[in-house]
Design a protein around this nucleic acid. Sequence first.
DNA 1: GTCTCTAATGGACGATCGTCCATTTAATGT
DNA 2: ACATTAAATGGACGATCGTCCATTAGAGAC
Lengths: 217, 217
Amino acid sequence: MESLNRVTEPKGRKRSSKRDPEANRRLLIKATLDTIADIGVTDTSVSRICERSGLSRGMIHLHFGGKDNLLTAAAQHFSTEYYAEMDRLADLGSDASPEDRVMAVIEADLSEALLNPRSTKIWHAFRGIASSHPGIARYSSTQDPKLVETLRRAFMEIAQQNGHDPNLVNDATSGTLALLEGMWVNYLTDMQIFSRRRSAELIRRFLGGLFPGKFML
Amino acid sequence: MESLNRVTEPKGRKRSSKRDPEANRRLLIKATLDTIADIGVTDTSVSRICERSGLSRGMIHLHFGGKDNLLTAAAQHFSTEYYAEMDRLADLGSDASPEDRVMAVIEADLSEALLNPRSTKIWHAFRGIASSHPGIARYSSTQDPKLVETLRRAFMEIAQQNGHDPNLVNDATSGTLALLEGMWVNYLTDMQIFSRRRSAELIRRFLGGLFPGKFML
DNA sequence: GTCTCTAATGGACGATCGTCCATTTAATGT
DNA sequence: ACATTAAATGGACGATCGTCCATTAGAGAC
């Protein structure tokens, strides 16, 4: 964001310990997400966010201009963080086999780092209000272009070894994302019963059927 | 509900045209669901529900004892209606082939009767607040026992013709429901792009991979 | 008609909502 | 040390929230 690196800033110190607007901005966003995960969007009010962050009530209007903008910023932050973590977990080098790369995405999406009580609650809360909140809808899509491209490229490599029809790659990509979506819902519905391993193996099995001879255990 | 059929009631007349508590109950539930679909759960207030139903503000407390109970009743009603319509659309006789029965469920779930703007918005709105609203969580599951059993039975018949491992049936059932879940999300995210036909064919393709020789076009 | 009982009304109520701003506090420049 | 500027505070404000209840209206029973 902040494009100018203030030349007056000495050493590597982060400003001067107090009065850090940027840190407070982030603190508010974090408090918002935590509150949503704890008590739900419906009960997430300005007062509640402030009391959790330890900041005063005026800060939201000061830094975001209103509650709606804070919510949108929180949704954007959450989405960005999610895909950044996905990149970190699933980005094997391009020397890895396409099957391994696909499975890396699946296992990353089902890992505790991405799929946990906090993130599922936040994710579904945002999705639930997205229809009536255009600003949030922009960040509640599961079809991140980069992730889609990663999957598509991998499936393409697998498919062109044999002679499959062109829609196969599209279907494999959409189907994989849809299956993962379903797994998140299963996790939200009953976290006790849910098994990350079984979920990953289920998806592998579906892909194995789609690409005979591939995705075997 | 009303266990006694008041003997004094003449003919088939519905009470006496005015003063119909049961109708008002249903009217309130319908107004609640419509409001949620229109402006979202967050903005769905007692006042808004009443103004839409044309009834007075006291009715909610009178018939449901509070807003929370009304919301829960609305979620239950919606869920019941959904599965009733699913039954109506997908219940081929048991003389139909298991493949046809599975595809009937899939096509029903993707039909305009079940998958439309109103129902997707309501469904995801309820799911979004389910985590912080135990009463609603009970009706936001996608794993309706009867529907699961229908699919499981059909996949069982398909599987036991060949000699597959026992987990195949469970995986096929869970996977089909997960894929449908993902399709609903796709529909919510972008209704313009969504295609019912392509979605159904995608799921069929995945099942075709799982059961070689079956689910062919 | 009168009595009885319940459905239904609509406003009162305190609590809380989100917004906004006068004021205070802290850091920087001179 | 003082002036300047930005960050941060916390309470005032009107609007709206959900609940509750005194009251009115309507439909049998007698």
